[in-house]
Amino acid sequence: MQNDKKRDVIFKIENLQKWFPVKRTMSEVFSGEKRFVKAVDGVSFDIMRGEIFGLVGESGCGKTTTGKLIMKLLDPTGGKIIFNGKDSTHLDKNDLKDYRERVQMIFQDPYASMNPRFRIKDVLEEVLIIHKKGNDKKERLEMVEKALSEVRLQPPHEYMERFPHMLSGGQRQRAATARSLILNPLMIVADEPVSMIDLSTRAEILHMMKTVQRELGLTYLYITHDLSTARYFTDKIAVMYLGKIVEMGTPDEVIDNPLHPYTQALISAVCEPIAGKVNRIKEVPIKGEVPNATDIPEGCRFHTRCPYTGEVCEKGEDPLIQDDGGEHFVACFKYKNLK
């Protein structure tokens, strides 16, 4: 039983941190004081095999940095990354290459993520060349063709010769997805994959991604600011605020029964295409905007904007994330009283 559960966790991060040093004033240099942007400040979560894990938050909450840490594009300041049962926080060259073969990424802007001078086939083939897959060019191109048909770019040879700018936004994101699939990875980190895509095709891309995920048994980390698509797309949602996860659970639980005041505010602020709201001023329970990450408030980091803040929230430690039962976690001192 214990073993089974462990095998199910494909990806685990423990207390992951990324602090970026910031420029100091002269007096700070002399006093030896160092200041940091604490972009990611102690994030932990588990992702199960075959799960779509959603990381949701506003801009500057650290979700993209978390994604980059996982992709090993940045080195963590602290914490652990465990992938497939192996500590992958720090990897040597060979292990890193291996890791990157298994963990792929889809970027927000599919156009920017492809070299404008490369044809689609070159973009996809490059990954194969890097990882020394396929014996010759012919074999590699066959693999490219297969990957393109997996993402429903049909017929593939029609798209292979094109340059990225000759494709529509949706087609480009499909090609980008194909690139991430071509090595048969175990996990894909998708950073806002549909936010630059027109609404009419957005669902199509998400649908395609989900189909591929089911067919190939992939695991996704879906990073987004958009709660609505997260609800549709993910199996689990983690809400981030200022570098920390404040709430985590199944989408239905988190969205229909939010426990953290921040999640509640976020959900109440989302616009919905429903009639009869035009003449009402919407209740927005929280004021202001996200504070600067160099200067994270003491105590609960949300207390400066929280409508329910009290003495317990303003001093001392951050609230720890705790289980409310039913795999619904929340990091708030007072959530029980709010219900």
């Binding site: 990157r100 990424m105 920017a112 890097i130």
Partner: peptide, 26 residues
């Protein structure tokens, strides 16, 4: 800083590859 450099880094491309295949041609 272009995303495609980051993308090929994430794909595991070596430094030499990024310099000669992606940066120099531009």
């Amino acid at each position: 800083e272009e995303t495609f450099i980051e993308a090929s880094k994430a794909a595991g491309a070596s430094n030499l590859r990024i310099i000669f295949k992606h940066m120099v041609p531009l």
